[in-house]
């Protein structure tokens, strides 16, 4: 039984230049307690998927498909019903802790308002819970720091507060949208370790959205690779790293600097991301794919396979 089931999700934005096809018929499931990565370059539509789950897409977005959670389709819920899911059942960690917190409000208040809303706690109880949440994300001296404003914290500490906000109601699913991108490398590691600890303690499912394969490797059970708003490959993380099946995944892995492979060359994928103003009629990666054949430019492959699924006519293992 999956916790969240995304089916045939498509997201389009109408802009001044035309319709942008940001996400094209993406489907995936997340099981309770599972740690899943959604990997892709910027513009691949990965953040939009998270926002569509939360119902936070920009106003000019059109969504189709279904997002099933506890037997209900989140896309059809009323605003009030959706508000009862947000933070309580599904919480989100945002990319930039500098801007995700309200700079004009004490961090304590930003935490307490969540439990006051969803659990009906009074001021004093809510405050106690906020301190607990801050302690859970290892903010030193939480009792006193609770009355500080966001600008009085460092970037890493702020991201801890954002995480505390996501965790305070102990939701079943956390969507972490590039939680470490805006931070220093050393702080990145701390935050990921923290997330890992908390995840195993609460057994919360996590959808980690990132462009950083290094972060994925240490954290996630399963990885999904997105390109041009299309799911390219999904596989257990170990398998994905050991034997990528989609040429795009292979290219992505080669572009990651590897400390064990200092002699190996670092190769960027040639070409640039696809033009999303046109609806997809063929594999979006075909134009940049070294293995592409004529058929790749005319058909749109489906996601197929067992443990490893890929949407490719000429997967890597078939060629070697």
């Amino acid at each position: 039984m999956s916790l969240l089931s995304v089916q045939d999700l498509a997201i389009r934005f109408s802009t001044g230049d035309g319709t942008v096809h940001a996400v094209n018929n993406v489907s995936f499931d997340i099981a309770p307690g599972e740690k899943v990565a959604l990997v892709g370059e910027s513009g691949s539509g990965k953040s939009q998927i998270a926002l569509s789950i939360m119902g936070l897409l920009a106003k000019n977005a059109q969504v189709s498909g279904r997002i099933l959670h506890e037997g209900r389709d989140l896309l059809t819920l009323s605003q009030d019903a959706l508000n009862k899911v947000r933070a309580k059942k599904i919480a989100m960690i945002f990319q930039d802790p500098m801007s995700a917190l309200n700079p004009y409000m004490r961090v304590g208040r930003q935490l307490t308002e969540i439990v006051e809303l969803h659990e009906g706690l009074g001021r004093a109880d809510a405050r106690k819970r906020a301190i607990e949440a801050m302690e859970a994300v290892q903010i030193p001296d939480a009792k006193n720091r609770i009355d500080a404003y966001p600008h009085e914290f460092s970037g890493g500490m702020r991201q801890r507060i954002v995480i505390a906000m996501a965790l305070i109601c102990k939701p079943g699913l956390i969507l972490a949208d590039e939680p470490t991108t805006a931070l220093d490398v050393t702080v990145q590691a701390q935050i990921m370790r923290l997330l890992d600890e908390i995840q195993s303690e609460l057994n919360t499912a996590v959808l980690l959205i990132t462009h950083d394969l290094g972060v994925v490797a240490g954290f996630c059970d399963r990885s999904m690779v997105l390109y041009g708003g299309r799911m390219m490959e999904t596989a257990p993380t170990k398998d994905l790293f050991a034997a990528p099946s989609h040429p795009y995944t292979r290219g992505l892995l080669r572009a990651v600097p590897n400390i064990n492979d200092a002699a190996g060359e670092l190769r960027a994928i040639p070409g640039s991301p696809p033009n999303q103003l046109r609806p997809l009629t063929h594999c979006p990666f075909a134009a940049r794919c070294v293995d592409a054949v004529e058929q790749c430019r005319s058909t749109l492959p489906e996601l197929t396979g067992e443990a490893t699924k890929r949407a490719c006519l000429r997967p890597v293992e078939a060629l070697s």
């Binding site: 936070l56 933070a87 945002f94 995700a100 917190l101 969540i114 954002v162």
Partner: peptide, 9 residues
């Protein structure tokens, strides 16, 4: 930060 507030429900 308003998006964060919306995400809180």
């Amino acid at each position: 930060f308003i998006r964060t507030a919306r995400a809180k429900g």
